[in-house]
Amino acid sequence: MLEWLAQIEPLSHKCWIALGWLGFVGLLALLTHYATPRGSEFVRKVVHIGTGHIILLAWWMQIPAWVGIGASIFFSLVSILSYWLPLLPSINNIGRRSWGTCFYAMSIGILVAWFWPLGLPQYAAIGILVMTWGDGLAGLLGRQYGRRIYYLWGSKKSWEGSVVMAVVSTIVTLAILLPTAGNHWQSWLSAVVIGLCAATLESFSKLGLDNLTVPVGSAAIAYGLMQVLA
């Protein structure tokens, strides 16, 4: 009993830190909502980019897998309910039908369940941060500066946004692989391949499905390549 309590006490501190970060992101989104005329899409990207960094906190604080999986299930259910109840109006009101918020929460749980038991949280971080920064910046910059438009699977995309997705995803992957796997050609080649694959997966974004396929696909490709090329 005493051993169990000794384990729970530091875990509660870690959870409060994680909740504090999510609270900060929520506050920032609220301030952005009232301070900018850009509309709900910009607020959604603030939440999108800010929330993804929870994976780094979980990795750094070594939060147990069951906590991450439980949080993923909880936020997935909240996001589903928000489509019928006004729980997340600034996030889900984006002018198109999308399950992206739910898929985003699900992807975190899937990657934690996959890579935490293996002792390889860096691959979960690659998947989530590729989605966080790659898709986040591709959406913002593509919407503002995209001029060369193409349509894929009923989704409107720009080549400028896809290029941003590929470049940012490559940089994010390198930022994680270089310190964890080493500065060698395998890391660089894997990062470039992941960037191209992430941009391709992001193109198929009907109903927000890319919020699941991009992080899970990027993490799987990173893990597979590093195993094969090692």
Rank of each mutant, 00 (worst) to 15 (best):
M1R: 11
M1H: 13
L2F: 13
E3G: 10
E3Q: 13
W4V: 13
A6W: 11
I8L: 15
S12A: 15
W16C: 14
L19K: 04
L19Y: 12
L27W: 11
A29D: 03
L31F: 14
Y34L: 13
R38Q: 13
G39P: 02
F42N: 05
K45G: 04
V47I: 13
T51Q: 11
G52M: 09
I54H: 02
I55E: 05
W59M: 10
W60A: 10
Q62N: 14
G68V: 03
G68E: 00
I69G: 06
S76Y: 04
L85D: 03
L85T: 10
L87Q: 06
L88V: 09
I91Y: 02
N93V: 11
N93P: 05
I94Y: 08
T101M: 06
Y104N: 02
A105V: 09
L111V: 04
W114S: 02
F115Y: 13
G127V: 04
V130N: 04
M131Q: 10
L137S: 06
A138F: 06
A138P: 03
G139T: 05
G146I: 06
R148N: 14
S155G: 07
S158G: 08
G161Y: 08
V164Y: 03
V172F: 00
L177V: 05
G182W: 05
H184L: 06
W188P: 04
G195W: 00
L196Y: 00
A199M: 05
S205I: 10
K206S: 13
D210Y: 00
V214K: 01
V214F: 04
S218E: 00
Y223H: 12
M226E: 10
Q227N: 14
Q227C: 15
V228W: 15
L229C: 07
